[in-house]
């Protein structure tokens, strides 16, 4: 019994992290219509920005996190302006954009490694001293509770924005058909810029959350990105809510798999699910 509770809790925590990753990724994919691998680098940048402000400059926790999110968003916005927009203006195909984003990921990762070294580092200042909650025999740390709560609130907020605001409707319009959206007066370039900012900021939050939960290293973005992508595909590419459900489902299957088999199998399980979905239900659980 106790082990089942703990495994369920582990799945919920992992699910919260994956769904944050999937949320931002999906939002960007939905509007810009390409697989933005640079998203992983943006997430890592958010975490490293917090590391710099919080641990190196000794800022207080909240302003460090706020700055981290802001920097991640700003970087995403900047990359969109400097790289992706130029390519789109030249009518570059999705493949070209994908490869360009792989370049972005590699370059940003390398820069992070040069500045901060590729050493694994922890974000929290007082490891081991934080509070621990007992939930029906399982345990959760304070950090994890915060991650879960903030994850859920961001999902809800994003859901409300997309559904009820003019901005959300404009995103939907651009996602459906960019040309028609432009004809009815939506400035799609500006909108895509904003989407990149928000999506990257959410990615930054995911990176920061991982940083506080376990730790940071320059390549962390890739791992996060992959879980986000798998979750997004399971849930249905471009479907924001589907991504969240896909994330929790992925986390549950992964953790159950590790329980029955062992840790070696985690990545294999995740990608086996991905392949099964691509083969038998490419549109994901929820169609867009």
């Amino acid at each position: 019994m106790e082990i089942a509770v703990q495994i369920a809790l582990n799945a919920v925590i992992a699910g919260a992290l994956y769904s944050l990753a999937a949320l931002g990724f999906n939002l960007v994919y939905n509007t810009a219509r390409f697989f933005d691998l640079g998203y992983g680098a943006v997430a890592a940048t958010g975490a490293y920005a917090v590391f710099y402000f919080y641990k190196t400059l000794q800022f207080d926790l909240l302003s460090s996190i706020a700055l981290g999110i802001l920097i991640a968003g700003a970087l995403g916005f900047l990359i969109e302006k400097v790289v992706y927009r130029q390519l789109r203006a030249r009518k570059a195909s999705q493949t070209v954009l994908l490869i360009a984003s792989l370049g972005v990921l590699t370059v940003v990762q390398a820069i992070i490694a040069i500045i901060f070294s590729s050493q694994f580092q922890t974000l929290s200042r007082n490891i081991g001293a934080s509070r621990i909650y007992n939930v029906y025999g399982g345990v959760m740390t304070e950090t994890q509770v915060i991650i879960l709560c903030s994850g859920l609130s961001i999902m809800t907020a994003l859901g409300i924005i997309l559904r009820y605001t003019l901005f959300g409707k404009a995103i939907k319009a651009v996602a459906d058909d960019e040309e028609v959206a432009q004809i009815v007066g939506i400035n799609s370039e500006r909108l895509i810029g904003i989407v990149f900012f928000i999506g990257s900021a959410i990615g930054g939050i995911a990176g920061i959350a991982v940083g506080f939960d376990t730790g940071i290293q320059p390549t962390m973005g890739m791992t996060l990105l992959l879980s986000g992508v798998v979750a997004a595909i399971i849930g249905g590419m471009g479907n924001v809510y589907g991504g969240v459900i896909g994330a929790f489902l992925l986390a549950a299957i992964e953790n159950a798999g590790v329980w029955y088999l062992s840790g070696e199998w985690k990545a294999a399980i995740a990608f086996a699910i991905l392949i099964l979905f691509l083969l038998f239900r490419p549109q994901g659980l929820f169609q867009k």
């Binding site: 082990i3 703990q6 495994i7 582990n10 925590i13 992992a14 694994f120 399982g138 376990t214 730790g215 953790n255 590790v258 329980w259 062992s262 840790g263 985690k266």
Partner: peptide, 9 residues
């Protein structure tokens, strides 16, 4: 790997 929780469970 940075998540050993399931193994530790």
């Amino acid at each position: 790997a940075r998540d050993y929780r399931t193994a530790l469970s």
